[in-house]
């Protein structure tokens, strides 16, 4: 089984991994880099538990070869510390078992950055990409509503907008 060295940019850090051509980004993040925030769920592109952000777009990491990620900026939930999305999920208790949470958080963060102040229709469309088996959708929607509203709001003195805060992680 042949493994090639691969250079990745994950959460702003340059990383080197050994990967098969057939390894998915999810497998490399978890198995090689120890970033277990992206969860293996269906591994079929349906549940969204493995969602990461690649060059600003939410991507299901089970549906991306690790080799495809070379030269692109990958962010995982471990890189979201201190963001408004994370804070909103805490304030709204937007999790039950928590297995889907990192995937929802990544979608929320990508939405905040791509469409600060996104309307309800867009927010729901983005959130339809993820499944919560505990059916905690109301709290999740409330949290994401809060996060996108904060992303739109002008920064108050002493705080930073979501997009800037997200880069601190």
């Amino acid at each position: 089984m042949r493994r090639d060295e691969l250079a990745l940019d994950v959460n702003g850090e340059a990383c080197r991994v050994l990967a098969r051509g057939a390894d998915t980004l999810l497998e490399v993040l978890r198995g090689q880099l120890g970033l277990t925030g992206a969860k293996p769920g269906c591994e079929n592109g349906d549940c969204g538990a493995c969602t990461v952000i690649v060059d600003g777009a939410p991507i299901k990491s089970c549906m991306m070869l690790a080799q495809e990620a070379a030269g692109r900026r990958v962010r995982t939930v471990e890189g979201l510390a201190g963001t408004a999305a994370q804070q909103a999920f805490v304030e709204r208790f937007a999790f039950q078992c928590g297995y889907c949470t990192s995937g929802f958080l990544m979608v929320a963060q990508a939405l905040c950055e791509a469409h600060p102040g996104a309307d309800e229709a867009r927010m729901l469309e983005w959130l339809r990409s993820n499944i919560c088996r505990c059916t905690g959708y109301e709290e999740i929607r409330a949290a994401v509503r809060d996060a996108v509203a904060r992303a739109k709001a002008p920064a108050v003195q002493g705080t930073e907008p979501v997009a800037s805060a997200s880069r601190q992680g």
Binding site: G48, T51, E125, R128, S129
Partner: peptide
């Protein structure tokens, strides 16, 4: 087609 995240791929 599919869902938004999938459409990003």
């Amino acid at each position: 087609v599919a869902d938004h995240t999938s459409r990003c791929k």
